[in-house]
């Protein structure tokens, strides 16, 4: 298992390498021209040439890519810029933004906090509500509670996030005044728990709804299948109480596939929840990535893509390892 984990981590590094290369070369394959962006309003050919020279946009792409990667490969980081704007960028160096000149590592570090709280909070919400509802529905199969939760799930899946988000804002903030307008200062728990929850509750609900619905359906289906298994019958035949049968024997088996999907979903979300962040103007990775793409800001695009890819790939590894802990059958092979 240890060897396996090491192998997977090495694999991850390779994947990230490949992704960085693909992003980099794809970016240059588009008609985008970052030099134009940098040189600003009073731009002329001379100034553009200057910019190209100082940022190295003249160099062959492969050289530029090598320069970018040196900040990630070299444990000492790299020196950025020229003329008066020289600065050191320590490992892992993701270069500087073309728009505001800030180091990308710092921008990401700032944006990761809100995204982290948003994603994990929503994940907890949809996991708990999805599993609970699904479980209840499965145990009351065919009864009204089941029908209700199936209906809710259908509703949740088909409700567009964008509409839901703006609807919540309208009802709870604009019209109802039940919650304050979002204030970026409250985006971390250090601002106090009440403002923190007030800040995140609507984004959580918005982000969690679709997944909660999907997880309800999944849990219900898995649980119904599992409760038909022979080993459940054995558990009852031992004289176990229904609660133990359901939780110890049934849920354990039914949740296994859900753990996998949960890990992957959460991993994907940590790269940013674009729509939700936008609706609630949360300064997270999603917003950062939108801004950078719209602004042709290559270093930031690269940074955001790499971070998002890292979470996805890493979540994959965590899930696989976790699976081995849960299901002894995959342990040996």
């Amino acid at each position: 298992m240890f060897n396996y984990i090491v192998r997977r981590l090495l694999q991850m590094v390779l994947i990230l390498f490949a992704i960085s290369a693909i992003t980099f070369f794809l970016f240059w394959a588009t008609p985008a021209n970052p030099a134009l962006l940098i040189c600003g309003k009073d731009c002329n050919t001379e100034r553009i040439a200057e910019v190209n020279a100082s940022y190295g946009f003249d160099d062959p792409l492969i050289v530029q890519y090598g320069r970018y990667m040196s900040g990630l490969v070299n444990p000492g980081g790299r020196e950025l810029g020229s003329e008066g704007s020289q600065e050191h960028c320590s490992w892992p160096c993701l270069d500087r933004s073309l728009q505001n000149g800030l180091q990308v590592t710092d921008s990401i570090a700032d944006a990761i906090g809100p995204t982290f709280w948003l994603a994990t909070g929503a994940a907890v919400l949809w996991l708990v509500s999805g599993v609970l509802l699904g479980l209840l529905a499965a145990l009351r199969k065919g009864k009204w509670l089941d029908k209700l939760s199936v209906g809710l799930a259908l509703f949740g899946v088909s409700f567009p996030t964008l509409v839901l988000g703006y609807l919540l804002v309208f009802v709870f903030i604009v019209k109802g005044g039940l919650l304050p307008y979002p204030d970026q200062a409250n985006s971390s728990p250090s601002a106090g728990l009440v403002p923190f929850f007030q800040f995140y509750i609507l984004p959580w609900v918005t982000l969690a709804l679709v997944n909660a619905a999907l997880y309800t359906r999944l849990t219900r289906a898995n649980m119904i299948d599992t409760m038909n298994e022979d080993f459940i019958r054995t558990a009852r035949a031992k004289g176990l109480g229904e609660r133990q049968v359901v939780f110890k024997h049934g849920l354990r088996a039914a949740l296994t596939p859900i753990v996998t999907i949960f890990g992957l979903d959460l991993g994907a979300l940590l790269g940013g929840a674009v729509i939700t962040e936008r609706i609630f103007s949360i300064q997270g990775l999603g917003k950062l990535s939108i801004d950078s793409v719209l602004g042709n800001d290559l270093p930031v695009v690269m940074g955001v893509v790499l971070v998002a890819a890292f979470f996805v790939v890493f979540a994959n590894i965590v899930v696989d390892v976790l699976y081995a802990f849960i299901d002894p059958r995959v342990r040996l092979s």
Partner: peptide
Amino acid sequence: RGNKVSMIFQDPLSAMHPF
């Protein structure tokens, strides 16, 4: 169940919990 009356099931792989 399992006490005064107990049962040996057919198909013992599926009758035991895999985990």
